[in-house]
């Protein structure tokens, strides 16, 4: 961004990068070591069939619970980012409502095994076929493809943390009351990410590739919303009675 305030010092960027990395590590749900130790544990064929034979609404509910758990960690991540809690309450809610699932999708690459196209879910590594009964193959395939493409960038935890914060602090979300305040925070985060990538001697194209992910993430989230509303149209009582309240609040 060309109109960046010249007052951001290197020290400030280093400090922000440290704060965001620490916040990420404290709230990442699963440590990298835990995930790596579990990669050999993929669901066996009979376990896959067990998920496939669950009633559609039961599997939807399970996934809604898992997404909600992951989102709660993202809320904690946001709260620890310098400046986030200084935004007005309206904007904190707007940013999390729009961005928390996007960060969950980003975080998915940490729990993704590219070797066999599986993701950590419900205690083991699961391939896309585990989610067949949900009836949204397109969304599942897109989520797996996104995780795979994120993995191919080989981001460090620090870089992933800064990219997650950059997404969460998107200043173009609708209904922000203090847009310019969010904009400044996002610009600072982008500079910290840029600085980190340079420090790690990553090529310029990595940042370009990451910026391109913004629209993919938005597409994934809108597809999730559409899929949920199609499900809700058929099973309104299940959603009302059995889905986590936070999930309904965010996506209802």
């Amino acid at each position: 961004s060309g109109d960046m305030s010249p007052t951001v010092s290197m020290d400030e960027l280093e400090h922000l990068a440290q704060n965001i990395s620490k916040s990420h590590m404290e709230t990442c749900q699963y440590l990298q070591e835990e995930l790596q130790q579990s990669t050999w544990q993929t669901f066996l064929q009979d376990e896959v069939e067990c998920y496939q034979s669950k009633p559609k609404e039961v599997m939807w509910q399970l996934c809604a619970v898992k997404i909600t758990e992951a989102i709660q960690y993202v809320v904690e991540f946001a709260k620890r980012i310098d400046g986030f809690m200084e935004l007005c309450q309206n904007d904190q809610i707007v940013l999390l409502k729009a961005g928390s699932l996007e960060v969950v999708f980003i975080r998915m690459c940490r729990a993704f095994d590219t070797q066999n196209n599986t993701v950590y879910f419900d205690g083991k590594y699961a391939g896309p076929e585990v989610f067949k009964v949900l009836g949204c193959d397109d969304l599942i395939t897109s989520a797996y493809d996104f995780a795979k493409s994120m993995c191919s960038l080989h981001l460090s935890e620090d870089e992933l943390a800064l990219f997650s914060a950059f997404i969460l602090l998107s200043s173009d979300r609708s209904w922000l009351q203090e847009k310019s305040k969010v904009e400044k925070l996002q610009q600072k985060t982008q500079l910290a990410l840029q600085h980190m990538l340079q420090k790690h001697q990553r090529g310029e194209e990595i940042l370009t590739k990451l910026i391109c992910k913004v629209s993919t993430l938005r597409g994934l989230c809108s597809r999730h919303t559409e899929t949920l509303s199609a499900f809700r149209a058929v099973y309104p009582d299940i959603v009302r009675a059995h889905f986590p309240p936070l999930y309904k609040e965010l996506f209802g």
Partner: peptide, 17 residues
């Protein structure tokens, strides 16, 4: 917005542990 997002608002209010 706060009214429609009581749980999220509550999570934001809780102190970080």
């Amino acid at each position: 917005l706060k009214e429609k997002h009581k749980i999220l608002h509550q999570l934001l209010q809780n102190s970080t542990s």
